[in-house]
């Protein structure tokens, strides 16, 4: 089995990179992250103390995430727009919203906008723990954001403490369903017999086919459950928490997110790669580190002030 190790800096050409690293067949290549700190950050990314840039009053503020901060910070020109907007913080006590100026309008979830949102989150999380904001929240003024931070202060504090030094990884596991059916036919005597009956029988094969379908479905189901529970079990002690999301399509048997301590990242990584070596017939799609999107759900609503 040949293994390809490819180093890639994600800030270069993400779309092309994504295409190349996602072959259509079950054959996959390993893409590992450039380990030099900061080398994959977008151009101009930085983190330093600094006042917000002077901005015209008519602009709104787009919020990317919430962080802990003791002073005003700037992260460089990595936000929305052309040229990319300056990303900075709006501070309230010891927490801050990471924002950039944006037009006061509903922001479309275009490819560029969504990737910019994620790019800022990924940049900030290189330096500190973030609670990611979902896409598309624009506040009219800086004061509105301060009000939000004040109102939700204890909730944000609590979640920031829980997520401290933790990052999320995504793991999708796919199989080749047809190959798995062939395997099942090979392994299971009943199914094999039914199949040959269907092939040779002269009269109606309706009931044999129904029975065959039922047995194959059941066998697929139990194999998939077996794989999934083995994989979860193998990763249990290298992560803090996990969430199983619904698999998408009939090739995917597992669609999970794992919350991992930063200093256990290498252990988690090694474990996932070992799983890849163990299960030859499965394809592992492994992404991260992400901000802990799957492990935080804070819903905000609008309320009349008293």
């Amino acid at each position: 089995m040949s293994r390809t190790i490819k180093r890639t800096g994600r800030s270069k050409t993400p779309p092309a990179e994504a295409k190349r690293s996602r072959p259509a067949t079950a054959a996959v290549e390993r893409v590992i992250r450039e380990e030099t700190p900061g080398s994959h950050l977008p151009a101009g990314a930085t983190r330093m103390p600094g006042p917000p840039p002077a901005s015209p009053d008519k602009r709104g503020k787009y919020v990317y995430c919430i962080v802990r901060a003791d002073e005003a910070l700037r992260f460089g020109p990595i936000g929305f727009g052309t040229p990319p907007g300056e990303v900075y913080t709006v501070l309230y006590e010891d927490i801050a919203a990471v924002v950039s100026d944006a037009p006061i309008e509903v922001l479309d979830a275009t490819r560029e906008n969504v990737l910019a949102h994620e790019r800022v989150n990924e940049t900030v999380m290189r330096y500190q723990t973030v609670i990611p904001m979902s896409f598309g929240t624009v506040f009219k003024t800086r004061d509105d954001i301060v009000e939000l931070l004040r109102g939700a202060h204890s909730a944000f504090q609590d979640v920031l403490a829980k997520m401290e030094n933790k990052v999320e990884f995504g793991l999708k596991v796919l199989w080749d369903r047809d190959a798995m059916i062939r395997q099942i036919e090979h392994d299971d005597e009943d199914i094999r017999r039914l199949k040959s009956e269907i092939a040779t029988q002269k009269g109606s094969t309706y009931f044999a086919r129904v029975q065959y379908g039922r047995l194959v479905d059941g066998a697929l189901q139990s194999r998939s459950e077996q794989y999934v529970s083995e994989i979860f079990e193998a990763l249990r002690d290298v992560c803090v928490a996990s969430r199983a999301n619904k698999p998408i399509g009939d090739k995917m048997i597992m669609n999970a997110a794992f919350l991992v301590e930063r200093d256990r990242e290498n252990a988690f990584d090694a474990r996932v790669k070992a799983l890849g070596g163990k299960y030859d017939s499965l394809t592992f799609r492994y992404t991260g580190p992400w901000p802990p999107y799957n492990f935080v759900n804070i819903r905000l609503k609008l309320e009349r002030a008293k």
Binding site: R10, S21, V31, E118, V272, F284
Partner: peptide, 13 residues
């Protein structure tokens, strides 16, 4: 089978 790992932002889906 080797495992492909991509950093978050490289897959739009």
């Amino acid at each position: 089978m080797p495992v492909e790992r991509t950093t978050g932002g490289s897959s739009l889906i």
